[in-house]
Nucleic acid binder design. Structure first.
Lengths: 177, 177
DNA sequence: ATCAATTTATTTATCGATAAATAAGGAGTG
DNA sequence: CACTCCTTATTTATCGATAAATAAATTGAT
């Protein structure tokens, strides 16, 4: 048995899962700790047993999401000429499997809590540098500009999903015959 | 005298101005009507004399911002091959003169109030269609894809400003010698 | 095995703060 | 007076956070 043998209801993870969904749906401020607790099936103060503050809970959710994104990108193997496309697919896949987290990440910069902005800043910076590094290593010319386009496209996809405006990403739209 | 005869302290506009700045800096939820009132130099309940609710005030601010953006784009005259660049400059200029409003617009989709999302959706849709129309009329191939890139770049610029990450827009960065 | 000691998991009750919104009233001026 | 501009006073609601208590489970010695 591993030292930390978690059994059936791992409360902390349940709380993280519920919080991820709620934060993504309702945003930081409209997501109350009471709602998170209710979604898990515990009482509101119990949430504070695992996370000292609501902000700490949010940061934990955000961290997990960013980690998943970094991991998804790191798993992409591809010849240089298809790298950008393949990383795009990886992003889309994650958007399918962990929609909440991805949309949360792409909006996290709009939350005016200093600590959250700081976290968002650091994570975006890391992701940007990682992608640029991979593009550069693949011999892609203008790696920086391509990375910016890649990230900008990610932001646009998130926008189109949040606002339910599929027209914003025409390359995914059914072509007019 | 014109029907709408505003004299010295045009409270409604002062409130809109103060609200724009505060909403952009602090976001929708951390901006209180008391802060807006204080910035103008009136009392908190008086704000409700001009706007029935805080949400209505926000929507008014947002509308004004979107209008300014649309107007800025509409004022761009350019030969087809420079159109996209010129519109980019127009965006940058507006970012210089009305930074608050622009950043507010580019984050408005992250505010989970249904009415605000709806407004954001409608305005983004209009702007997208207008730009695409202009690109298409200028004979730009792949007008839709170019428009998406244009909007995506706008989102990226806003992100880089909000997070203070200039590296995200390398074409504005001082080149390493 | 039994029973006391202690920890783990969770709840109930509640405080203090803040914020949006309403209602009613003053104050200056033509 | 009456009209516009603005304030004071107050209400209602919500939320994050803390403190204290309970109950169940585990451990450890006899």
């Amino acid at each position: 048995m591993s030292p930390k043998d978690d059994q059936a209801p791992n409360r902390k993870e349940q709380i993280l899962d519920a919080a991820a969904q709620l934060f993504a749906e309702l945003g930081y401020y409209k997501t109350t700790t009471a709602l998170v607790a209710k979604a898990v099936g515990v009482t509101q103060p119990y949430v504070f047993h695992f996370f000292k503050t609501k902000e700490e809970l949010f940061l934990a959710v955000l961290d997990r999401g960013f980690d998943r994104l970094v991991y998804a990108f790191s798993g992409v193997e591809s010849p240089p000429d298809e790298l950008a496309d393949r990383m795009g697919y990886a992003f889309d896949e994650l958007l399918g499997t962990h929609r909440n987290e991805i949309l949360l990440i792409m909006q996290s910069h709009a939350i005016p809590e200093p600590a959250i902005r700081q976290a968002s800043k650091e994570k975006f910076s890391i992701i940007y540098r990682r992608i640029r590094e991979r593009f550069a290593n693949a011999g892609i010319p203008d790696a920086s500009a391509q990375t910016s386009m890649f990230v900008g496209t990610g932001l646009l996809i998130a926008l189109s999903q949040v606002l339910e405006l599929p027209e914003l990403i025409p390359w995914c739209e059914p072509e007019a015959d």
